[in-house]
Amino acid sequence: MDYRQFRAFVAVFEERNITAAAQRLRLSQPALSGSIRLLEEALGTALFVRKARGVDVTDDARALYPQLRRMVAEADDLAQRFRKRDERERLTIGVEEDVARSTVQYLAATARACVPGVQLHLLAQCDGDARLASEELRCEDELFLPLLSERYVLALPAQALLPDNAAAAPQDTATDWIVCPTHASHQRLMPIYGSRSDSPAALASNFSLALDLVAAGVGRAIVPESLAQAMPGVQTQPLEVELKRRIGLCYNVQALGNGALARLRDGVVAI
């Protein structure tokens, strides 16, 4: 058994996909599969169950993952210590959909303050040492460090404002809703939509697209306040029933083997 096999195992375990793991390690799929096979032979047990799409992990793999993830992190950290002094520490953060730019900018500024000289790598996807996301999107094996708590508001076209100080009542069935039925927040918002949610004016896959529809005059949507405030052509009104969401860092304990992430975690202050 060697370090390359351990890295291959960790990548496949976390990606649940041979192709994605090979791309992450910049290896060919045959080379990655070969490393996994050699590790399974050395251990005398199957670690993954190959399927048509991706892989499933075995109980032995679940038991092995924390140990090998720690060993890989320690080896990587050891290698970093002997690199040239002018080499920057890297911190990769995946940014989920529907996180306001102001929140991304706050996190970037905080990372630079906590880790001087850090080389930030932001990804518009679910990847990295940590993810900037809403708490609803936290994976089962992840910890959550809150950065921002914000309310949901009613977003409507600027030319169709409700009267001053009017609140959007849950029983308002005259609203032409724009809904996001595949979004993690949809079930929480259903009581406010009411019966009209069965035949909405439009559908969107995320809040940002829903706000584009609002600005175009298609209808109204319930969205996080930070996103609505940044969208031209959109005005907001408070909801009668207060709903909030939390945005923060999602990360695995093992990822703290990256010293830059550990220092960011210890130094960040909620907005």
Rank of each mutant, 00 (worst) to 15 (best):
V269F: 01
E225N: 05
L64H: 01
V10Q: 07
E140I: 07
Q67G: 06
E135A: 09
H121I: 10
S205I: 05
R101T: 14
V241M: 04
R62C: 13
E97W: 10
L107K: 08
R53W: 01
V104D: 04
A124L: 08
Q237F: 01
I178C: 00
L123G: 01
L203R: 11
V12P: 03
V99W: 03
D266K: 09
Q67H: 14
L213I: 00
E242G: 05
C139Q: 09
D59I: 04
S208K: 08
D77Q: 11
S197W: 10
D127T: 04
L43D: 00
P170Y: 02
A42V: 02
L107F: 12
P181Q: 02
L47K: 06
L249P: 03
F48K: 10
L145T: 07
S102A: 13
R16H: 10
P224L: 08
A260L: 06
R37E: 02
L148Y: 08
N252H: 08
A255S: 15
V223T: 03
T58M: 08
G34Q: 13
Q105V: 12
A73E: 12
A109L: 06
R263E: 12
L261D: 10
E242P: 09
E87P: 01
S195M: 10
V72T: 03
A46E: 14
E87R: 12
I192T: 14
S33A: 13
Q159Y: 10
L203Q: 13
P200M: 02
D164A: 12
L64V: 01
T182F: 00
L209E: 07
E140D: 08
L156H: 03
F13R: 01
Q237H: 13
I18V: 14
P232T: 04
Q119D: 15
Q23M: 07
